[in-house]
Design a protein around this nucleic acid. Structure first.
Length: 590
DNA sequence: TTAGGGCAAC
C-alpha cells in the first residue's frame, strides 16, 4: 500500500488504529515516517507505546539513528523493550560506541535488563576496540543470572574469540547449554573470521557428534576454514558431504568453494568451477580475479576483469583490489596507474580508492624500484595513510636496500603501529641486508623492551586428510630421520646442478629462521622433503607457509622441482609460487 | 504486549 500522509494543516480525523496501520505500511521511507510522526504530534492523541515502538523499529531499520534517538529521549520511562530496540538499532547500524553508551545509561538509571538485552549489548562490546567494556558487561550478565541464556553465551564466546581470548571462549563452551543450529553456525563463523580455522573445523565435527545437522551456512564457513588452512582434500570431502546430505549448494556455497580452490593454489580446479557455475555474482568474479593474481597469472586476471564488464557485471572495490594486486605481482606499473586512475576519476563514492588500494599502488611502485614516487604518492593521498600503506613502502625499502628512506618510513610507521611484530622484523631484515648489525640489535632490544614476540614461521603439508606442520629445525615429526636423509640427498643432487646456498639472505619475514645454520632446515624445506617422501608421484606438493619465504628456499624449490620432476606449490603469506621444472610462476619477482 | 542470533571475495 502506498502511503501519502496528508498535509498537517488539514483537519485531522485519524484514529490511533489508522496511525498504526499507516506506520506499518510506510516502513520504507524516512520522510514519510517523519511526516507521520509530525502529524501524530498535532493530533493530541495520547501516543501509545506501541505506535512509538513501530516508529522506532522502522527508523532503526532505515538507519536514521539520530531521529530514533530523539524520539527515544522524548519518552518518559521507556520500557525495556524500547531500550533493547535502540541498542539493537545502534549495533545493526555499526555504532557500537553509542550502543554501549545507551547500555551504560540504562545501567545508571537502574533499568533492569531482560534476556533480550544482552545478546546485542555483548555484540556491541565485541565491536569495540578494547575488551574492557565487554568484561564488565559479562559481570553484569552474571549478576542478573543471565549467563545461561543460550544466545547471551554464544555472543560472549564470539566476543572473547574476537579478542583472542580463546581460553575464556572455551570455558563458556564447556559448560553445556543447549545450542541450536544458528548458535553453532555463529560460533563456527566467528572462529573462521578471527583466523582460528582449525578450531572452526573442530567445532564443525563436534556439531555432527552433538547431533545437529549442518546447513548451507555451516558448510560455507567450513569451506572457508579449509581455504584458510589450505587443506584441499578436507575441503573436497566437506563439499561432497554437503552434496550427499542434500544441502542446497547455492551461489554462496559455490563461491566459498571457489575461494577454497584459489586459496589452496588449485587454480585449475578454480577455473573449471568458475566456468561451470550456473550463476555468478560480483563476488565470484572478484574471487577468480584475485585468484589469478596471487597465483601469478596476471594477464588472465586482467582479461577476466574486461570479461566481467562485457557480461554486464559492475566491479566493486574488492574487484579493483584484485586488479591492482595482479599489476603489483607482475610489476605492471603503467597498467596499475590506468586502473587506479579509473577508480579515482569515478564519480561514484563506492569506487573511490580506499587505503588498501593505496597500499597496493605503493607496493607496485615500490617493488618496481620507484621508491621516491611511492613516497610522494603517499604524501599526496587525500586520506590518512595507515600502517598497511607505510608497511608496503618499508617492504620495498627492504627489497631495494634503501636504508635511509626505510628509517624515515619506519619512524612514521611506528606512530600508527608501534607494537607490530612483523614490521619490526621487516625493519630488522632491512638492516641485516645492508649489514647494519648495530641497527639490527637496536630493533631487537626495542622488541624485547616492548615485549613484542616474533611469530614463529611454520610450513604445513596436507597428506591423507591430515595436516603435518613443520617448524624450522623441527625434529618432532615421526618421519624426521627419513626427512633429514631426503633433505641431505636433495642438497647433494642440486649442488651438482649449480645450487649455491644463500645463507645470508634475509630480506623477508624469515623471523626465527634467520640464522645461517638454520637455513638448511627452514620449515618449507622440511615440508617439501616430507611431501616428496609421502605424496604419490604425479601429484603436486602443496606447502602452506604462514610467513614470507626466503630467497634461499625459493631457489632450493626451483632446483628441487627440476631434479625430482615434481610440481611444488608454495603458498606464503601473500602469494603463491608454482615451481615447475626449475622455474617459478612468479618469474622471481616477489 | 510487541521482540532476538549464523554464510562467500578484501
Amino acid at each position: 500500500m502506498p502511503c501519502t500522509p496528508k498535509p498537517s494543516n488539514q483537519p485531522i480525523t485519524l484514529t490511533k488504529q489508522a496511525f498504526s496501520t499507516l506506520l506499518k505500511s510506510c516502513s520504507s521511507s524516512q520522510n514519510q515516517l517523519k511526516q507521520l510522526h509530525a502529524l501524530l504530534l498535532t493530533t493530541g492523541l495520547s501516543i501509545k507505546n506501541s505506535l512509538i515502538t513501530h516508529l522506532l523499529i522502522n527508523l532503526t531499520l532505515l538507519g536514521d539513528m539520530s531521529y530514533a534517538r530523539q524520539l527515544f529521549d522524548e519518552m518518559h520511562k521507556p520500557r525495556i523493550f524500547l531500550w533493547n530496540t535502540l541498542i539493537k538499532g545502534y549495533v545493526k547500524n555499526e555504532l557500537p560506541m553509542e550502543a554501549s553508551s545507551i547500555y551504560r545509561q540504562m545501567h545508571v538509571l537502574g533499568v533492569r535488563p531482560d534476556p533480550f538485552t544482552y545478546p546485542f549489548v555483548v555484540k556491541a562490546c565485541a565491536k569495540l576496540p578494547e575488551l574492557w567494556t565487554g568484561g564488565a558487561v559479562h559481570v553484569h550478565v552474571m549478576k542478573y543470572g543471565l549467563e545461561f541464556v543460550s544466545m547471551v553465551r554464544t555472543e560472549l564466546m564470539i566476543m572473547y574469540m574476537k579478542f583472542g581470548e580463546l581460553g575464556s571462549a572455551d570455558f563458556l563452551f564447556q559448560s553445556v547449554v543447549e545450542r541450536d543450529l544458528v548458535a553453532w553456525n555463529a560460533l563456527i563463523a566467528a572462529c573462521v573470521q578471527n583466523g582460528h580455522a582449525s578450531k572452526a573445523l573442530g567445532l564443525f565435527r563436534r556439531m555432527g557428534v552433538a547431533g545437529i545437522k549442518p546447513d548451507a551456512v555451516t558448510f560455507v564457513s567450513a569451506l572457508s576454514a579449509c581455504g584458510q588452512l589450505g587443506c584441499l582434500e578436507i575441503g573436497e570431502e566437506i563439499y561432497e558431504a554437503a552434496r550427499n546430505e542434500g544441502i542446497d549448494c547455492n551461489i554462496i556455497v559455490e563461491n566459498a568453494r571457489l575461494d577454497m580452490y584459489v586459496k589452496c593454489g588449485s587454480i585449475d580446479m578454480a577455473r573449471a568451477l568458475f566456468i561451470n557455475m550456473p550463476q555468478k555474482s560480483v563476488i565470484s568474479w572478484s574471487t577468480m580475479i584475485l585468484g589469478y593474481a596471487i597465483n601469478g597469472e596476471s594477464e588472465k586476471a586482467l582479461a577476466l576483469f574486461s570479461g566481467m564488464q562485457n557480461e554486464g557485471f559492475l566491479p566493486n572495490h574488492v574487484t579493483y583490489l584484485g586488479v591492482l594486486s595482479a599489476c603489483s605481482h607482475a610489476g605492471l606499473v603503467n597498467e596499475g596507474w590506468v586502473y587506479f586512475g579509473r577508480m579515482a576519476r569515478s564519480s561514484e563514492k563506492n569506487f573511490q580508492p580506499r587505503k588498501e588500494h593505496y597500499a597496493c599502488m605503493v607496493d607496485l611502485l615500490g617493488r618496481s624500484g620507484h621508491l621516491e614516487k611511492a613516497y610522494n604518492f603517499i604524501k599526496s593521498m587525500p586520506i590518512e595513510p595507515d600502517a598497511g600503506v607505510w608497511g608496503a613502502l618499508l617492504g620495498a625499502c627492504a627489497i631495494h636496500h634503501d636504508v635511509k628512506l626505510g628509517q624515515h618510513v619506519a619512524d612514521l610507521l611506528f606512530e600508527v603501529a608501534a607494537d607490530s611484530a612483523s614490521y619490526h622484523v621487516l625493519m630488522s631484515n632491512m638492516y641485516a641486508a645492508a649489514g647494519r648489525w648495530e641497527c639490527v640489535d637496536k630493533v631487537r632490544q626495542r622488541m624485547r623492551k616492548k615485549g613484542i614476540k616474533k611469530v614463529a614461521g611454520y610450513s604445513a603439508v596436507e597428506f591423507n586428510s591430515d595436516f603435518h606442520v613443520f617448524y624450522g629445525g623441527d625434529r618432532s615429526h615421526g618421519q624426521s630421520a627419513l626427512i633429514y636423509e631426503k633433505l641431505g640427498d636433495l642438497f647433494e643432487q642440486i649442488k651438482s646442478m649449480g645450487y649455491i646456498p644463500k645463507t645470508g639472505s634475509v630480506f623477508h619475514d624469515v623471523e626465527t629462521e634467520e640464522k645461517e645454520v638454520t637455513v638448511r632446515t627452514h620449515s618449507e624445506k622440511l615440508a617439501i622433503a616430507f611431501g616428496l617422501i609421502n605424496i604419490r608421484p604425479g601429484y603436486p606438493i602443496r606447502v602452506m607457509k604462514n610467513l614470507r619465504t626466503c630467497a634461499d628456499c625459493h631457489t632450493f624449490s626451483k632446483f628441487v622441482s627440476k631434479v625430482t620432476m615434481r610440481e611444488i606449490i608454495l603458498r606464503d603469506k601473500i602469494r603463491f609460487h608454482h615451481f615447475r621444472n626449475g622455474v617459478c610462476s612468479c618469474k622471481d619477482f616477489w
